[in-house]
Amino acid sequence: MSAAAIPARTPRSGLRALLSRQPEWAVAALALGLMLVIGAVNPAFWEPANLFSLLRANVVTGILALGVLLVMLSGGIDVSFPAFAIAAMYLTIKGMIAVGYDGVVLPFVVATLIGLGLGLLNAVFVHGLRMIPLIVTLGTGTAVRGLLLGGVSASQINIDEMPQRLIAFANTQLLTIGSGDGHVGLSAMVLVYLLIAAGVHLLLRHTLAGRGIYALGGGEEPALRAGFSVRNTRLLIYGLAGALAGFAGLLHGSMIWVANPRDMAGSEIDVIAAVVLGGASIFGGRGSVAGTMLGVFTFVLLTNSLIIMHIDTTWQRVVVGLVVVGAAGITAWRDQRRQRGAGRGVGS
């Protein structure tokens, strides 16, 4: 028999092969291109103050995006995480004020656990009742937000009441440039973000549980036959996505010095846009931490640079919409070509 009779359809070398195997490079190239264009329109883009603030803006969106990535890898979608994030943040801070506690580690643990619990609720509905994730998370998100606003409180906690050590932690700076009034610093939270991303990367890439998430995205039946526990995998996915949201929520409140229970409404679309831009497929099984981080970076770059580009910020929604449609369109086109490729030679 001749083994060469079974060629793969992948181009084996060159740029196309690279992009086919690691689409992250395409997103990276896009980000770089955008930076060059924006920098050419307004050289102020390259000033450290702007670059640092861009990186800072990556943190919360990025952590949330990692959670969405997990859900999308399994072939689902999550729109409940902003509500979970804000609920975890608000409840934690409210609790801290009530008992007069000020600290850093314990609050983050509590917020993460609240998020975890809410995420597990999603898992129960998605796995136990076999319901489409979009509809489940639409329901849990609205219910949680409604309960928070109606059952707890709808008023925001301002900086004078916020736990001071939490704020101090969130505003730690890694390095500063310049001095006096003109000095700018890079938020240390970027480091937190990188650590979490590295953790999720290790999970997805180097643990069997993580590979189980990809396997589930490839197909539930094969995953079952191979011996994965689909139930446990779903609990992991939605639980971890919830936990990441809880953590990101508290970080968000600490970074902006305000705990507003109405915050982040509608931000699910931005985060989903960033994840899709990073190459993850809504059909599951495709996407990576690196791609998602690049997607978030590109997305934040695009939406935060409108002012620098002298474009009215009212255009932001239009830009976000175009990003979603464009990125999803490219993914659909790629999937269709793939299907057509695989469909050949079938039949009798």
Binding site: R211, Y214, A215, G217, G218, G219, E221, P222, A223, R225, A226, G284, G285, R286
Partner: peptide
Amino acid sequence: IYQDFSLFPNL
């Protein structure tokens, strides 16, 4: 070996 091979297409 099942008819659909039970493989993970994305891996």
